[in-house]
Write a protein that binds this DNA or RNA. Sequence first.
DNA 1: TTTTAACACGAAAACGTTTGCGTTGCTGAA
DNA 2: TTCAGCAACGCAAACGTTTTCGTGTTAAAA
Lengths: 350, 350
Amino acid sequence: MRRKVTLKQIAKELDVSISTVSKALRNSVEISEDTRQKVQAFAKLYNYRPNNIALSLKNRKTKTIGIIIPEIVHHFFSKVITGIELVANSRGYNVIVGLSNESFDKEVINMQMLANGSIDGFILSISKETLQQQDYHHFTETINQGMPIVMFDRVVNEIPCDKVIVDDVKGAKQAVEKLIGNGCKHIAIITTKDYVSVGKLRTQGYLEALEDHKISPKSSLILKVDDKLLSENHLEALEKEIEQLFKSNKNIDGVFAVNELYAVTAMKVARKLGLEIPKSLQVISFTDGVLSKHSTPSLTTVSQHGQKIGEKAADLLINRLELDESAEEEEDIYETVIIETELIERESTK
Amino acid sequence: MRRKVTLKQIAKELDVSISTVSKALRNSVEISEDTRQKVQAFAKLYNYRPNNIALSLKNRKTKTIGIIIPEIVHHFFSKVITGIELVANSRGYNVIVGLSNESFDKEVINMQMLANGSIDGFILSISKETLQQQDYHHFTETINQGMPIVMFDRVVNEIPCDKVIVDDVKGAKQAVEKLIGNGCKHIAIITTKDYVSVGKLRTQGYLEALEDHKISPKSSLILKVDDKLLSENHLEALEKEIEQLFKSNKNIDGVFAVNELYAVTAMKVARKLGLEIPKSLQVISFTDGVLSKHSTPSLTTVSQHGQKIGEKAADLLINRLELDESAEEEEDIYETVIIETELIERESTK
DNA sequence: TTTTAACACGAAAACGTTTGCGTTGCTGAA
DNA sequence: TTCAGCAACGCAAACGTTTTCGTGTTAAAA
């Protein structure tokens, strides 16, 4: 087993100085053609690669991006990561992942673990607990220390950083308008509690669509599900809540759900109650994931283009990183990019 | 904006040497109570954290694990990452992710990017292209350089490293035996081409189960789907193939699919052909993901316990890393851990 | 022959730590 | 008074790079 070879070892072996080796490998004109070739041949033979850590220390940049997300077993987030990784890699960056597991503490700890030199900047989506507690000091602190952050999807406006979001209001509105256009008169929404910003915004879109079409919203048609029910272990409880919704509102002919799980569960319950989809009940869901495509009937969804979000976020971050480099003067002008949603029609609507 | 503070700055500010600061912060007895407190107070005030990169360089270890997987938008792989991240974090390690996208070249490049000092060891699952080309030099080379690798799920025996796998043969066999026990007489399998090791093994389990029950396998009941059809864009082609299978074998009463997508697609086709599940057709799938849980009917599956696989892999790797440390003498005894599969019964079987 | 310039290379600093060891200054004992 | 011994601290090396600034040699120009 031969350990990784260093400049020093090459230098010793060839009886030249470390600097000569370094320069020879970087094709410096200072080095004679002769030694240059000797060094390069030797380096290739021993498969020399510069030590990344040493470079990071010297350059004071790691060419690594830190990602903090609530969970990874989630179609949307993994799509975003795919996008980030794609552009990061093509621009010579690595990607290091931390999971907050929707917990404030883990979010803070994860950020601290990474902020001490391991990475050049963050791309993150805020955990629910953090949103609930509204404690954002760990974000502002890292930003103050000169480490840029790009937030996506779950963002908060107060924090000075670039953001990539979808227009949740607009996307939801379009979905509900689709239902209205398809003849639905009594449209229910299955959403989350309000502290989840995206849930709140999608609810707002729902309300705006109704309002625009002179339909007065009924609070009994708005089901705000507790987040605990999102975990896969509380399916029955979720089903119960939704069943209750249908039973106390027999005339529901359209459902807008803020995520796939709510939608497929609603379809399941509806089918149990004898409703036919899309004949007597039409369903649209936010978030275009695997479930939508393969459920029966397949779901009409509002696609968020997770991968595109990731790509854009990575581009924003790397741009800022490499801009800092040249013009050390940082303009505190932050961008908020809105990725357009897209209504993907499938079998759950007419 | 105050940049990250270093030992040097603290030293200068307090008019002591760098070593004094370092020792004071680490509570060395060499330092007087007085200065120790002064230093610690100052450090806390300025929120000093040792620079990870500098530590990595000095200690020649990064406390970071590199993961290379074919894709991340995949329930199984993201579950594995969750597991890895869980134990890695609890043991003080970070996790850096590279996606091979099932490509040999990207796998090699990704490994090279990380192997140059950025990480202490790899956890990986081999890309399909690599399996097809059977070119494993990048694995053996990194191992030769003293960087341990743990492989999971898609492994190859020739490579000297720890491995975490599920018993694909046994899992598949149990599934098929379940179908047989439930009265199925004509059981089809929908699998992949043989170079995908897990596909091959699961097929083997299928055959063994049949053999054990004196059922002679019929080649017409074995559908080996081309991988290209796994990508979400070739759904119709996949459906066609499966439809063909059903049409040329009208008596099929059981289907064992090596992944969820094949299974739900099979159910979809079957339903279209007028087959009732599970009455006239029972379906079991390998890989317990989101689809299984939420499809209609929900799928009976062979769960691989992805998270547990990740946890075990991380433990193996970190154990080896921290063993190297003390007893530099490495025993080349590698472990292959088998995570038991579990048959999760749902609505697609009687 | 002497000066100059090009050429080829080496020494050393720097990035931020940790740590073994050397160096002060002082106290107490001989 | 002298010296051992201790307390408290600083020096310097090391991790592996890159890069600036020498420095020595040689050949060409004066």
